[in-house]
Design a protein around this nucleic acid. Structure first.
Length: 375
RNA sequence: GGAGAAGUAGCGAAGUGGCUAAACGCGGCUGACUGUAACUCAGCUCCCUUCGGGUUCGGUGGUUCGAAUCCGCCCUUCUCCA
């Protein structure tokens, strides 16, 4: 049984952007795609029905977090993560590699794997590339990731080289461990901001022949221009006919820049996290709905948005929900932010098919007011 | 009418001679957030301001080198008894 199939349906003539279909056993996903993050087998605050209603084609979950709670055995016993959370669409799991980065205070990296201190109770945990795959086999997502080391920025060339070599050995070990033919396995390109290391890592991964390739180690503190270079350096050496996934990227301009460079998949916690913190992404830029000026603003968030929130609620009401710390606000704003990005990418697909992606990007940029840092 | 208790910044509440423009919490304002330890975190919140300065702790008059803190009187609120 073939795990996934990727078909390129259109290549834009004005940029490197392309459209495709990712066929999984839980349904087809049109690319480019933005994937909402549901770390603990839940996109925070949203029901599966709501996730589907916003047009989400595929969602993410996380190996490290599900391993700790409820435990991958429980998920396996439930019949896999799809059944566990009552979701029948495509799903992807991250390997725990990002937690090697984000829980850096509590871990030690060795050739064999990573020793963690559980962020929940301090338990000593050991995650190896084999273990990361075994857990993901138990969880049962359609697409799974190799364990990688996501490196801080900036990092010295020597260290990055050493780390990339280890990530490559981990990728190989993970691939040899992978036992489920119904799950696609992606390798992850690292290499920091160094062109030679990105190239080296990409080429070595391609030799191992993964089902798809992720670009990792971005949005870890570098400026945007550097990040785009990291993408350029990596993507250049990836096979044309395999999906490319830019991990952890979800700012409006970053998605558009990624698509322009030939990225097929994105995921990011940004839309859901900032939604919970009261920040909303609109076609005119970000707004903070908690601000006083929205207290009696009875217009909708974004006149151009077709989401449930914009169709039914006013800024004044959302402002009230946040001031009152009512969870409905977090939910409604998460729906909006996710729908905004999903729609952004849906329209990008249309533009690509018409060979007008560049024009599309420029139109978005002309309306969207970025702050001085580019968000 | 009598007996107690209390009045501190928008609110609640510490402080009971100098280290106090006054802890802390709430409320308010602003900002951050990119493969989720995040319904979180950071800053500001008497007035003018860059340093710095100016007015504060119910009112008023004292004591003291120095008072939100001690004393007198006045005002207000609460509780209990008649």
């Amino acid at each position: 049984m073939k795990n996934i199939k990727f078909e390129i349906t259109h290549e834009s003539t004005d940029t490197n952007a392309r459209c495709g279909i990712l066929k999984t056993l839980h349904g087809d996903v049109e690319t480019p795609i933005f994937m909402p993050v549901g770390t603990l087998a839940t996109v925070k605050f949203l029901s599966v029905e709501e996730i589907k209603a916003i047009g989400s084609g595929i969602i993410l979950s996380n190996t490290y977090h599900l391993w700790l709670r409820p435990g991958s055995d429980i998920i396996e016993k439930a019949g896999g993560v799809h059944k566990f959370m009552n979701y029948d669409g495509p799903m992807l799991t991250d390997s725990g590699g990002f937690q090697v980065f984000s829980l850096a205070d509590n871990r030690e990296i060795k050739e064999e794997g990573v020793t963690f201190r559980s962020h929940l109770n301090g338990d000593k945990l050991f995650l190896s590339p084999e273990k990361a795959i075994q857990i993901q086999n138990q969880i049962g997502a359609d697409i799974i990731m190799s364990l990688d080391e996501c490196i801080h920025y900036p990092a010295k060339h020597d260290y990055v080289k050493e780390s990339v070599d280890r990530t490559l050995r981990w990728a190989k070990r993970g691939k040899e461990t992978h036992s489920r033919s119904d799950q696609a396995l992606f390798g992850i390109v690292q290499g920091g901001e160094y062109e030679d290391l990105r190239e080296y890592c990409a080429k070595e991964l391609v030799k191992m022949d993964f089902d798809g390739y992720s670009i990792g180690g971005t949005s870890v503190g570098e400026d945007k221009e550097t990040m785009y270079k990291m993408v350029d350096y990596s993507i250049k050496h990836l096979p044309h006919d395999k999906p490319r996934y830019l991990m952890g990227v979800g700012a409006v301009n970053d998605i558009l820049e990624g698509i322009e460079r030939g990225v097929d998949m994105f995921d990011c916690v940004l839309p859901t996290r900032i939604a919970r913190h009261g920040t909303l992404i609109t076609s005119q830029g970000r707004i903070n709905i908690k601000r006083n000026i929205y207290k009696d603003d009875f217009t909708s968030l974004d006149p151009n948005c077709d989401c449930y929130t914009c169709q039914n609620y006013t800024k004044a009401y959302l402002n009230h929900l946040y001031r009152s710390k009512e969870g409905l606000g977090d939910r409604l704003c998460s729906i909006h932010n996710l729908r905004f990005l999903i729609k952004l990418v849906e329209n990008a697909r249309i533009a690509i098919k018409e060979n007008k992606f560049k024009e599309y990007k420029e139109k978005i940029y002309s309306e969207y007011k970025f702050d001085e840092r580019g968000f």
